[in-house]
């Protein structure tokens, strides 16, 4: 970064400033990224004020604020997030890398000293904060010019400096980001870790289970069990029509009906019962589909099974019946109890 050359003519300042003012007047539609943004009239006023302060870099900035503010009014509280974003830092880093590479490349088109100094000042603000270094002697022309560029930015915030820096680089080299390896890599990575960015916050972190396929489970399922588990009623029907037994067991003795009940697929349960599935089929542990319905709290399915004569008193190998396992006050379990 340090390789800036001598101070250019004052005319460049005039030209740059004139350009920015011209841009200010003409901006009604401004682009940021791929997004089209309509700028309102009062924003232009804000920009004009800003530019009178010699603070020409804030044009797009202020427009953005108002736009966001307007959107805010329409948004619900669901849009709150914790943050610790580094997108700006990353983009700024990429921009400085690009500028350094461009400055080192003799073939690259040169930018004016004035713009270079402007970038220098912004860089110093972004990385070191406001200038409080002593003023270099007037004899040291380059050092003095650089100091002036830094010092005149005053107490600008590092974030603002980064944004302005990026804006200037983007104006000079609209396609800089495409040519920057760093940036492309960042984007690839960002896409692949998007889930971690949800956790980018200070304070409470939302965590949920890491998904781990159970390793010690050597259960084998047939296709009809998978269909029952997924609630794919049409597939179930076609297996049965093609001669697969409606009571086919998986390696732990479960029928398709067990699986359909376990996952709560009412339609599939209905279909299997309609195809004369064994309603009191026992798995290896002696549990029937009604045991499953009770344990899993599937009231509608349990009621349906009871109506189709599932045995509520059938014992599994631990001597538990569906009725004894049922902690919910389901009337269809109670009324039958009375009959016993």
């Amino acid at each position: 970064m340090g390789d800036w050359q001598e101070l250019g003519q004052a005319v460049f300042i005039g030209l740059t400033f004139a350009f920015l003012v011209a841009k200010l007047i003409s901006i009604v539609v401004s682009f940021r990224g791929d997004q089209l943004r309509i700028t309102r009239e009062d924003d232009l006023q804000g920009e004009a004020d800003a530019s009178r302060n010699g603070d020409s870099g804030v044009l797009e900035e202020d427009a953005g604020v108002s736009e966001e503010e307007k959107l805010l009014g329409e948004e619900s509280d669901d849009d709150w997030e914790g943050i610790e974003s580094t997108e700006l830092d990353e983009e700024f880093s990429a921009a400085t890398t690009f500028v350094a590479a461009t400055a080192a490349d003799r073939m690259a088109p040169k930018v004016s000293n004035d713009v270079q100094l402007q970038l220098y000042g912004l860089y110093k603000i972004a990385t070191e904060g406001p200038c409080n270094a002593p003023q270099p002697s007037a004899m040291k022309v380059t050092a003095r010019a650089k100091w002036n560029a830094w010092q005149k930015l005053g107490v600008m915030s590092p974030e603002e400096a980064m944004q302005k820096y990026i804006m200037i680089v983007t104006e000079l080299y609209p396609n800089w980001a495409d040519n920057s390896n760093t940036r492309n890599k960042d984007e690839d990575t960002a896409a692949s870790v998007s889930s971690s960015s949800d956790k980018a916050r200070m304070g409470p972190v939302f965590s949920s289970f890491v998904y781990e396929e159970e390793l010690d489970n050597d259960l084998t399922l047939e296709a009809i069990h998978v269909s029952a588990r997924e609630g794919k009623t049409q597939e179930l029907l076609s297996y049965i029509e093609n001669g697969v037994s409606v009571n086919l067991r998986d390696s732990e003795g479960r029928t398709p009906l067990h699986w359909a009940v376990d996952r709560g697929h009412f339609d599939s349960v209905e279909t299997l019962i309609g195809k004369n599935a064994d309603i009191n089929a026992k798995d290896e542990e002696g549990q029937t589909p009604l045991h499953y319905a009770v344990v899993c709290g599937r009231e509608a399915i349990a009621e349906f099974l009871v109506k189709h004569n599932a045995d509520i008193n059938i014992r599994d190998k631990d001597d538990n019946s569906p009725r004894s396992l049922c902690s919910s006050p389901w009337p269809f379990m109670h009324s039958t109890k009375v009959l016993q």
Binding site: V65, E68, E75
Partner: peptide, 15 residues
């Protein structure tokens, strides 16, 4: 509890 409304995340309010 550092929280910033989503619409303002580009404003770099956090620092």
């Amino acid at each position: 509890f550092l929280c910033v409304h989503k619409k303002l995340r580009s404003k770099r309010l956090a620092p």
